Amino acid sequence: MSSVLFYEKPGCLSNAKQKALLATLGHRLTVRSLLAEPWTAERLRPFFGNLPVRDWFNPTAPRIKQGEVRPETLDAATALVLMLDDPLLIRRPLIESEYGCGCGFEPGSLLTALGVTLAADQDLQSCSRSGPDPRCDLPTDGAAA
Rank of each mutant, 00 (worst) to 15 (best):
I90K: 15
P71S: 03
E98R: 04
L89R: 01
P59M: 02
V31P: 02
A36W: 05
T24I: 11
W39I: 06
V53Q: 01
I90N: 02
L84K: 07
G49C: 03
L88P: 03
C103P: 09
A36I: 04
P87L: 14
G26V: 13
I90W: 08
C101D: 04
T78A: 15
V53F: 02
L25Y: 08
A77D: 13
R91Y: 01
V53G: 01
S97V: 15
R54K: 15
D75G: 04
L44C: 14
I90H: 06
E42V: 03
C103Q: 10
L29P: 02
M83R: 05
D75E: 09
R92I: 11
I95A: 04
L25M: 05
L51D: 15
Y99F: 14
I95T: 13
S97Q: 10
C103H: 05
E42Y: 04
W39K: 08
A79T: 00
V69R: 00
I64V: 14
F48P: 14
C103W: 00
I90L: 09
G102I: 03
V53R: 00
F105Y: 12
L25P: 03
P107L: 03
L82W: 00
Y99I: 02
I64S: 04
N50E: 12
E106G: 11
W56T: 11
R92C: 09
E98I: 08
L89D: 00
E96F: 10
C103V: 05
L25H: 09
G104L: 03
Q66A: 11
S97D: 05
R32L: 14
R28W: 07
P93A: 12
P87H: 08
D85I: 02
A41T: 08
D85S: 14
Q66F: 02
W56Y: 15
C103I: 02
A77L: 03
G49W: 08
M83C: 12
P59Q: 07
E98G: 12
P93T: 09
L29C: 08
L35N: 09
V81H: 07
A36T: 08
T78R: 13
A61M: 05
R43G: 10
V69T: 07
A36S: 05
E106V: 12
W39S: 07
P38W: 08
R63V: 11
R32W: 06
M83H: 01
R63F: 03
V53W: 00
F57W: 05
R43K: 13
P87R: 04
F48H: 14
F57N: 01
R63S: 15
L94R: 08
E72S: 09
A79Q: 00
A61G: 11
L34V: 07
A23D: 02
R54Q: 15
T30F: 15
R43S: 13
